[in-house]
């Protein structure tokens, strides 16, 4: 009976939702560091296409109790694919997990798992999370490449937010390297494109380039001088950003 009802109700909601295209996605939080799988996707640091998760890493919401990186279901299933070469972060035995929140839900618990073992739990007893959320979790002496599954259990709904974090534990030491079946680790992520802070004058404006005050570029046939040091981004084209670029 419930199932039969579900279809019409959902389709009504779907129509209503698209009528109100207005309603932003229901989205709430993920682990920013060490980089979770969705955080790596959002930085385009994977060697494969992550799909929609790229622009909404905060949206991995699913019913509580799943042990999968996407929380179960079909959405964002790429996050479950352990055959992908997910970038790892090198860490020691104690790791501080930092969360980005886009909505502050009352929280029951924050749970951390390796495999089926819960290695950490923080009980908020229904409190609203503070401005930032960080938990220091012991990995219990595990070494090598591991994946930590984190679950943010919301207090007043049946849902949780899921983040998986790929770690290389204790691999950086000297005499006893742990063989790893995974691709090279990425301990010092630097998403900034490497470029000269003072590219030759008169080059074409390019996203990803660091421009110093006074640098000149051309864009769409016109010349501009940089007013404020910055790394150029798509959307910050000179004609769109009079605060950064002046026509010359």
């Amino acid at each position: 009976m419930r199932k039969r009802l579900a279809v019409p109700v959902l389709s009504i909601l779907a129509v209503a939702a698209s009528l109100l295209v207005g309603v932003p996605a229901d989205a709430h939080g993920y682990i920013s560091s060490p980089a979770s799988r969705q955080a790596n996707c959002a930085q385009h640091k994977t060697s494969f296409d992550c799909g929609d998760i790229v622009w909404e890493p905060q949206s991995v919401e699913a019913p509580k109790g799943s042990m999968q990186c996407n929380g179960g279901g079909s959405r964002f299933a790429i996050l479950n694919d352990n055959s992908r070469p997910w970038p790892t972060t090198s860490v020691g035995n104690n790791v501080t997990f930092n969360w980005v929140l886009t909505a502050r839900h009352r929280t029951s618990t924050w749970e951390y798992f390796v495999g089926s073992t819960r290695i950490g739990v923080v009980n908020d007893n229904g409190a609203t999370p503070g401005a930032t959320v960080s938990h220091n979790i012991s990995l219990g002496g595990r070494t090598g490449r591991i994946t930590v599954l984190a679950r943010w259990n919301v207090y007043d709904t049946g849902n949780a937010f899921y983040s998986c974090v790929d770690l290389q534990v204790g691999g950086g030491g000297g005499g006893n390297p742990t063989p790893s079946p995974t691709p090279p680790t990425n301990p010092t992520p630097s998403p900034q494109p490497t470029s000269s802070p003072n590219p030759p004058s008169g080059t074409t404006w390019t996203a990803g380039t660091a421009y110093a005050v006074g640098a000149t570029v051309t864009y769409a046939g016109l010349s501009y001088r940089c007013l404020q040091a910055h790394t150029a981004l798509a959307g910050w084209e000179p004609p769109n950003t009079p605060a950064l670029w002046q026509r010359v």
Binding site: Q43, H44, N98, W236
Partner: peptide, 14 residues
């Protein structure tokens, strides 16, 4: 711009 800023900041926070 926000997507690019987020990517840059995730790199900085790591």
């Amino acid at each position: 711009t926000r997507s690019s800023e987020i990517a840059m900041m995730l790199g900085m926070v790591a």
